[in-house]
């Protein structure tokens, strides 16, 4: 057993972190959030690096790597809070690869893999990230057993504002001539949950770093606030949430590639844990920053808002905990 990335995977992660540190700085995240528009050039650059198609098969025009590699990129994307349709488009691509017909695959996978087209993914009547400027949408029926595919041009799509201006969200009108997907929609849903969890892990890791830096620096009563145990224990709790979510998210991404029999439970585990971590850790970051943490001027609120949306997307902690219990009860009854 080796519960760690390979050298290549570490390299992918490092390269992604370096790239986004330059291309998705806090200033750029803020300017995209405040203007409500993404920088086209970032997506083009990610596409040049092969990010959109990393986990799409070579046959489908992608890089032919795994969900694990894709998850490392999403983690870094969350860490940098990058303004791009990467999460939604990657989830859409994996769903088509997983559940699409041959025609659907040959029509959409190469375009999604190259980044020439973008996609969105969501549960019917719920929120669809980055759907407005997308080209194709996978809509999963509530309950998760079936999914359909619709070209965005043929769908009634409405954008709405959420608390999270770092990303654009919308909804998709019902039954707009969607083309049924023959494959396993629940697996597509699990994969999307794993990708979202990876983004949440990155969000947690980043605000935790910001918080540790801040409490080391900020002085009250003549000493750094990070020397007070109450603050220290808060930070320790943030680390426990973050690292716990990281363990289960990597496990779920590994299961997606290596052992599909584990995927359903692992994805529920990851989404349950990462949603909890995302909400708790970003809230704790605001608290540890004190008054400044509650201002628009500080950057922590962007992370809090993204975490809230990611946690709610595809069901949050309670939804996925209920799933874990249901699976455990079924396993118990069959013993």
């Amino acid at each position: 057993m080796e519960f760690d990335f390979s050298e290549d995977q570490h390299e992918i992660k490092r390269t992604a972190k370096d790239l986004l540190a330059k291309r998705s700085t806090a200033e750029r995240v803020r300017s995209a959030a405040e203007s409500g528009a993404y920088e086209e050039s970032l997506w083009n650059e990610l596409a040049e690096h092969g990010w959109p198609g990393v986990a799409i098969s070579e046959e489908g025009g992608g890089g032919g790597l795994g969900v694990l590699e894709l998850a490392t990129l999403l983690e870094e994307s969350g860490y940098a809070l990058a303004n791009s349709p990467f999460l939604a488009s990657a989830a859409c691509g994996l769903a088509i690869q997983e559940a699409g017909s041959d025609e659907q695959k040959s029509e959409w996978l190469p375009k999604l893999a190259s980044g020439e087209a973008t996609g969105s993914f969501g549960i019917d009547t719920q929120t669809f990230p980055d759907v407005v400027d997308s080209d194709v949408i996978v809509v999963v029926e509530a309950g998760g057993s079936r999914a359909g595919l619709v070209a965005t041009a043929d769908a009634v799509v409405k954008e709405f504002e959420t608390i999270d201006p770092t990303r654009r969200y919308g909804e998709v009108g019902r039954g707009e001539g969607s083309d049924p997907m023959p494959g396993d929609a629940s697996a597509a849903l699990s994969l999307a949950a794993v990708l979202t969890s990876a983004e949440l892990v990155g969000v947690c890791a980043r605000v935790l770093e910001m918080t540790v830096e801040y409490v080391k620096d900020r002085k009250q009563f003549g000493r750094p606030v990070g020397s007070f145990q109450a603050v220290q224990h808060r930070c320790a709790q943030m680390l426990l949430h973050t690292e716990g979510a990281r363990s289960v998210t990597y496990y779920a991404a590994w299961a997606a590639d290596a052992d599909r029999s584990l995927l359903e439970e692992a994805a529920a585990l990851a989404k349950s844990s990462a949603s909890k971590a995302g909400v708790e850790v970003t809230a704790s970051a605001i608290q540890a920053h004190g008054g400044i943490g509650f201002t628009w001027e500080a950057d922590v609120h962007w992370f809090y808002k993204r975490a809230q949306m990611d946690a709610a997307y595809l069901g949050g902690t309670k939804t996925h905990r209920a799933k874990l219990t249901q699976l455990a009860a079924a396993a118990s009854a069959s013993r």
């Binding site: 519960f3 760690d4 716990g244 289960v248 349950s272 909890k276 905990r321 874990l324």
Partner: peptide
């Protein structure tokens, strides 16, 4: 009760996986 058990399932698996991850880190 289902929620509370779900929390325990999540924690117990997190513990197992984090323990293995920690062990891998030390070995490597």
């Amino acid at each position: 009760i289902g929620q509370a058990l779900g929390d325990m399932l999540e924690r117990t698996e997190t513990l197992r996986l984090t323990a293995y991850r920690g062990l891998s880190t030390i070995m490597k």
